[in-house]
Write a protein that binds this DNA or RNA. Structure first.
Lengths: 166, 166
DNA sequence: CTTGGAATGTCAACAAGGCTGACATATTCT
DNA sequence: AGAATATGTCAGCCTTGTTGACATTCCAAG
């Protein structure tokens, strides 16, 4: 039953299986953001701030335009978040060296501290999930997620993970 | 190097691996919601409407309180969304049979059509990802997602997937 | 029967964080 | 010199989350 031409079972492609995957994504993403959200709420920041901090940490010196592309929001939206982070002394914006129109973004010491706190919390949940599921499951997890991305996002993602710091 | 007491490699639990998983979740979730978002934008609905429609479809006759617990929002927030769906004739709200304080929620024919359109789009991307990654990867994907949920969410999730329609 | 509590709905106000459009400024490229 | 680029900013709008207050309706305990 439901055997493909190559004799391989395609039961994992039924609507029922796909629906389970969809609902798993929904609930898991809530868990994924829950811990940072709690920390951020105390400091009256939101997810938008977290995302900005995360990617500035990942690519220190990145420009505003780069960040816009990674986050997929408008400059007005990002600017609001960025302005508050700069005012609060978590992010530093330096005029570009070669091209003075650009602003290079860096985390300050305070910014790095918050980044640490947030990513520790998020990593801790991830680590627990990984440990529970085991290495083979983790490999599959990443494969499916990568296949689920849009082309542009996959490029962003690969640029980050391959070219990332060692 | 990095071998546990049982001789099993723990390299998949390094901060680097965890960070990749975190970023994969971020980008994949964008892809996950992209197709429904496009359809919803045309009809001037948002993700909140999609979520309500999805879970009413999954559990026809569910009460408002049930839906609140599943979605994790306040009744006021849900009520706004629900009201517009009822006004537009996508959702029907019937007074409860045994307990008349409760409202039982159902999709109308029109509501079912939109649900179909949305879930077709979302399933299509899921199917493509599943097919690319293969059945073993899918099993791992689900395992990690389930391990990532909060207790309450996992209960919600299991109640849905186990007790769900056949 | 009355009263307390539960479930629901509604109104108002507010905030975060998306969006668009328009415009200013500085800088670089042609 | 003029066009294009990168950024910032102002104003206004939308969705979707929040809290607080209050009305209604119904069930169940006293």
């Amino acid at each position: 039953m439901a055997e493909g031409a190559g004799g391989q079972s395609l039961l994992f492609l039924t609507d029922e299986q796909l629906r389970k995957g969809i609902e798993a994504m929904f609930f898991a993403y809530r868990g994924f953001t829950a811990d940072p959200d709690r920390i951020l709420a105390e400091k009256s920041y939101g997810r938008a701030h977290h995302r900005a901090i995360h990617f500035i940490h990942r690519s220190p010196g990145t420009t505003v335009n780069n960040l816009l592309a990674t986050l997929g929001v408008t400059k007005q939206s990002l600017n609001r978040v960025l302005r508050s982070l700069i005012e609060d002394g978590l992010v530093e914006s330096r005029v570009g060296r070669s091209d003075k129109r650009e602003r290079n973004l860096y985390l300050t010491t305070t910014g790095q501290e918050l980044e640490r706190e947030l990513s520790d919390a998020q990593r801790e949940r991830m680590r627990a999930a990984y440990r529970t599921a085991g290495p083979e499951a983790v490999a599959g997890f990443r494969q499916v997620l990568e296949a689920m991305m849009d082309e542009d996002m996959r490029r962003q993602y690969e640029r980050l993970t391959e070219g990332g710091r060692k």
